[in-house]
Design a protein around this nucleic acid. Structure first.
Length: 731
DNA sequence: CAGTTAAATATTTTT
DNA sequence: TATTTAACTG
């Protein structure tokens, strides 16, 4: 008798779900039901193998994935998953540090530094070391620090011989001292500290090793070194004694697109070496795309070396061919897409089913304009999230100070926001005192006031600020969270400050502050919260670790615009992959460095496999990037697709677009003038040929009468013609 | 201290 | 090109 949980799964999926106690690698191709397998396996472990939810640990990368997993498990087993540890690497690390803050030398109320806060602090550190910010850009230093932490390296592990490394090491060291003094933990530090806790504290380590019998990791191809080491410590594998947890990793080496931020695909192979007797299962049946799309995607990714090997297949239909549209510039590309979407809509399809994918965010603007022009509602992914907004961060900084006075990053942010007469000069004095005495800014400010080192006006202002924070804690400490935040926003003067500003921007800021109060009112404390964590502290952690869900108007029927990266894990019936040009996709930067081109190819694979029914690929012969016109060749990736899966669309100016459309104006500059000088024709100009009919001038090469021009004929496609021989008429 | 102007600079992103 | 940030001025 087969277990009901296995009923609707294919053979491979069943094998993965029902595997007995052993380590397992599930190579799950795009659209192969990866999450389904993960969720069913957890349910199966509990129902069939009598595994207690208490001994299950499931790790994901994003909060969204964690929430989805939890939700799906609950609806599958019909009961709470409270006892299970399900979360992101960072969320779980935070949980560990909270529970063992004393063991890792953190104050009880330590706060999390997001990357924005981190950058400010790094910048401050560089200044305090009297280093030139031009020579040592804070961004790069921040990147360096995080990269080292991701490798598990502390400053003392670095033996930089060259001057560059030595200085960066110095910055890292000073930054870490500042963090420790203020009780601040950045994202990478969460992982590193949690790792050190498990590594160095046998009692804690053995406790968790005994507890977690089953460890499941999603998107394993995206793990970095410290995350890999983390899982290994939890599992107890490679240690001489102690209990062993069984680790299931799920991932797809072909979808590894985060190598540039420290992810190591090799961790999959490393897993097979480090863990004994690993069962490998390939999920290759795809339930998402047409066979045409899969065939093309397989062909593209087949050009990569050293793959673990996997070929997606489907028993679905071939579907339509992939359309390829060669636009003459980015405006034309956008206009064409808008036209296609209008057709899609006229056929009664939903706009939410359409995605526009691009390599870099800068490409979104032109697409947006075209959507606006065609009155197609759209939604852009990856904007500023709620808790990242300036006004919200201001409010949170006040709350952080109330929660703990040592938070230097928070103090820096709001000591003069709104302005209260504490200028750069005064703050500089406080910083200097703090550095000299090795204390936090708060303590330094207080000492300077009591010592009367500060002069009259400054002393008053600083004193008033210190008193404000103290009073706020005294008076609102007992309030419910929402009410507390409301009072803090008002009494601090933040609300008044934004209310006084004019313009639409300021209005939304005021709205956001009100929304923050609202969010606090509805904030449900996590069930696992320990008793020594105040509601305020749990809210602050929530704000730092989950910088806000997507926007509210999610339900509007709108086209989705996003980068290829953020499309991973999603699927859409109709997908447009735009800007598929050499230099843009693959991007120029990736073509220089070894290994990066393959990652671009994987990105292409990811993009293609988002499409369920129809994939449309577009590229522009000419594109304006940062103010200069670029001529691009078509991306090599298109050449890697089987030509019989492609349908090259002829350029046709859609009927709805007026001749005065902005795209035509585009050609009256630079390159176009030059083209006119050489050939007598302008780029974008309409011409007529006796045999090929009407077309648009795309490009030119050479000079004088021997020069050739490329014309995209409406009916005959694109052709290169020598100006002297082709009898062309202007239309 | 606030407002203005000049200059630098711009894949990809989550936590 | 457009946006952000540092330096300058009233």
């Amino acid at each position: 008798m087969q277990h009901p949980l296995l009923a609707e799964l294919n053979d491979k999926q069943c094998e993965a779900v029902a595997a007995h106690e052993r380590h397992m690698l599930v190579l799950a191709g795009a659209g192969s039901g990866k999450t389904r397998v993960l969720v069913h396996r957890i349910a199966y472990l509990m129902q069939e193998q009598q595994v207690s939810p208490y001994s299950i640990l499931a790790v994901t990368f994003t909060n969204k994935a964690a929430a989805e997993m939890r939700g799906r498990i609950e609806s599958l087993i019909g009961s709470s998953t409270r006892a299970m540890w399900i979360g992101t690497f960072h969320g779980l690390a935070h949980r560990l540090l909270r529970a063992h803050y004393m063991d890792v030398g953190l104050p009880q109320n330590f706060q999390i530094l997001d990357s924005d806060d981190q950058q400010r602090l790094v910048k401050r550190t560089i200044r305090s070391l009297n280093l030139d910010e031009k020579r040592w850009p804070p961004k790069q230093a921040q990147w360096f620090i995080n990269a080292k932490k991701d490798e598990g390296l502390r400053p003392h592990h670095l033996d930089g011989y060259d001057f560059n490394e030595r200085t960066l090491k110095e910055i890292y060291d000073a930054y870490q001292v500042a963090c420790d003094r203020a009780g601040l933990v950045d994202f990478a530090e969460l992982l590193l500290r949690a790792h050190e806790l498990l590594r160095d504290n046998a009692i804690v380590r053995e406790h968790y090793q005994r507890r977690f019998r089953h460890i499941l990791v999603d998107e394993f191809q995206d793990t970095n070194s410290i995350q890999y080491a983390w899982i290994k410590l939890f599992s107890g594998v490679g240690e001489s004694q102690g209990a062993t947890g069984f680790v299931t990793i799920v991932g797809d080496d072909d979808q590894s697109i985060y190598g540039w931020r420290g992810a190591k695909v090799e961790n999959i192979q490393q897993f097979m070496r480090d863990y004994p007797d690993v069962l490998t299962i390939r999920l290759e049946q795809n339930y998402r795309s047409t066979s045409t799309i899969l065939r093309a995607a397989n062909n593209v990714i087949g050009n990569n070396q050293g793959r673990l090997g996997k070929e997606l297949w489907t028993d679905g239909s071939a579907g339509e061919p992939i359309d390829v549209y060669a636009a003459f510039n980015e405006m034309d590309e956008a206009r064409y897409i808008a036209g296609r979407i209008e057709q899609w809509r006229e056929h009664g399809n939903a706009l939410t089913d359409v995605a526009l994918l691009y390599r870099s965010n800068a490409q979104s603007r032109v697409l947006e304009e075209a959507m606006l022009h065609a009155r197609i509602p759209y939604r852009i992914y990856g904007g500023l999230r709620f808790f990242d907004r300036q006004e919200v961060k201001d409010a949170l900084a006040y709350l952080r100070l109330i929660a703990g006075r040592n938070d230097d990053a928070a103090l820096e942010r709001v000591i003069n926001t709104p302005t209260r007469g504490i200028g750069d000069r005064t703050v500089g004095i406080i910083r200097e005192a703090a550095r000299d005495r090795g204390i936090t800014l708060w303590d330094a400010a207080r000492q300077l006031v009591t010592e009367k080192t500060l002069t009259g006006r400054a002393a008053n202002a600083v004193g008033a600020f210190l008193a404000l924070i103290d009073t706020l804690e005294d008076e609102t400490g007992d309030f419910a969270l929402g009410r507390q935040v409301d009072v803090v926003i008002k009494r601090s003067g933040l609300m008044a400050m934004y209310e006084a500003e004019k313009g639409e921007k300021a209005e939304t800021r005021v709205e956001n502050l009100k929304e923050l109060v609202n969010a606090c009112d509805h904030f449900a404390e996590p069930e696992e919260a320990d008793e020594n964590m105040t509601p305020l502290n749990s809210f602050l952690a929530h704000a730092a670790l989950e910088s806000g869900d997507e926007q509210a108007d999610e339900h509007q029927d709108a086209v989705q615009l996003m980068t290829l990266h953020s499309a991973k894990g999603l699927e859409f019936p109709l997908v447009f992959m735009t800007g598929v040009e050499e230099g843009l996709f693959p991007s120029q930067q990736s073509m220089d460095e070894a290994g990066r081109l393959e990652e671009e190819r994987r990105l292409c694979y990811v993009g293609m496999t988002r499409a369920m029914q129809k994939l449309v690929i577009t590229y522009a012969e000419q594109r304006r990037i940062y103010g200069t016109d670029m001529l691009h060749r078509v991306s090599r990736f298109i050449g890697e697709m089987p030509s019989d899966a492609l349908h090259h669309v002829r350029m046709k100016v859609p009927a709805y677009s007026s001749p005065s459309a902005p795209a035509m104006g585009r050609f009256h500059s630079g390159a176009s003038h030059e083209a006119f000088e050489q050939t007598g024709f302008q780029l974008g100009q309409r011409v007529r040929h006796s045999k090929f009919g009407e077309g648009t001038v795309l490009n030119y090469e050479g000079t004088g009468p021997q020069s050739r021009i490329q014309i995209n004929f409406d009916d005959a496609g694109s052709k290169w013609l020598v100006v002297a021989y082709a009898r062309l008429d202007r239309c």
